[in-house]
Design a protein around this nucleic acid. Structure first.
Lengths: 196, 196
DNA sequence: ATAAAAAGCAATTAATTACTCACCTTTAGA
DNA sequence: TCTAAAGGTGAGTAATTAATTGCTTTTTAT
């Protein structure tokens, strides 16, 4: 029943994400992945050299699709604060559909076990913070945000806030809607961003 | 060289925390703990029935000492916002000295592996949020904070913010000072809390 | 059509690791 | 002082699991 390489790789990546959301990274064994895909355990290693490589592919998938999602429906002509609002909204909507994301992104297991994966994760995180900083900077220049806003600092805190939110969401087994939370966070941030 | 029960238990808990800070939970094997304490691996099981029990004791230690630290030097006569400022400061100062804390508190490994440990962690977290909510409520009643402040929501976001900060601190290998950060976070929160 | 490459598998391996067992040594209390 | 419990150990065990091996089947390109 040999399927072509690309197809199987995608299936394995998807199965890994599903299992991670359900069980947490630690329980995602190569056997469990194989079972989910419907192949034998050694077959997994025909498509990925090591287990780490599977997770690297998962992180790659997340990086690609998360940035697509964040950009979708945004318009460079929108005001920076509208763009930032949409970024948060899109980000949380995407993650709401992919419960594995927080478990992968904020896993100390992956972070500590493999320098390669750690680097991938930090790159993704840095890109995110850079984009938020950019929007804050633009908003500042447009006079939308307060003149004395520390854009770097604020971007890091926004990232931290969302990260904390996601960890809670994942620890409490996804029992609240992330999409609703986007609006609430946005309101929470208003007094930080805007002069009055 | 038999030492009395209580002494050894403390040594084991301490060794576990040290190793967790250095290597992450996953690498803290009973063998590693034994080596650090200077005893044989089976001896660990004379003092704790299972590995999970060791981590339960660690969480107990953290819960006890973290709440002590948070309360230390606070005065019920201080204004609620001064008390809240000190709470954040004390909390971050304590954690700055105990690098294992974020790794333990926000570990999905512990959270998912053992319902018992998960319950302990959530209890600790709920107590923290409750205390912050209380202070926000008092500040609101005193007219220090804005009348329309959602104390529950804000307390959860403060917790999330700090959690995100701690995860970053731990992922970036403790390369910035948490104590300084307390002041910065406090300033960041001002516009959220206060009317103007 | 056919040979080579890719995909598949059953069986096994090698490493790790929490935990047990049988026995010895130290400590504390009657 | 003597004994029983507590603390300690070396040598296992059993379970888990990533990765390998040797072989078969399927797919693909010529």
């Amino acid at each position: 029943m040999g399927k072509p390489q690309e197809q199987r790789r995608k299936e394995i990546v998807q199965a890994t994400m599903d299992l991670t959301a359900e069980l947490g990274i630690k329980s995602v064994t190569t056997q469990a992945i194989a079972d989910k895909v419907g192949i034998a355990q050694p077959t997994v290693f025909r498509h990925f050299k090591t287990r780490d490589d599977i997770f690297a592919a998962v992180i790659g998938w997340i990086a690609e699709n998360l940035s697509k999602a964040i950009l979708s429906g945004t318009n460079p002509d929108d005001s920076p604060d509208e763009q930032l609002r949409k970024l948060l909204k899109n980000q949380l909507t995407f993650i709401n559909k992919h419960r594995a994301v927080p478990k992968i992104l904020f896993s100390d297991v992956l972070n500590l076990e493999s320098p390669k994966l750690k680097a991938l994760l930090q790159e993704l995180m840095n890109g995110y913070i850079k984009r938020v900083t950019q929007l804050l900077q633009q908003g500042k220049e447009n006079g939308l945000f307060r003149k004395n806003l520390d854009t770097d600092q604020t971007a890091r805190y926004i990232a931290a806030l969302i990260q904390g939110l996601l960890v809670r969401w994942s620890v409490y087994e996804f029992n609240f809607s992330l999409e609703k939370e986007a609006e609430i966070i946005w309101n929470f941030l208003q007094p930080v961003l805007k002069e009055n």
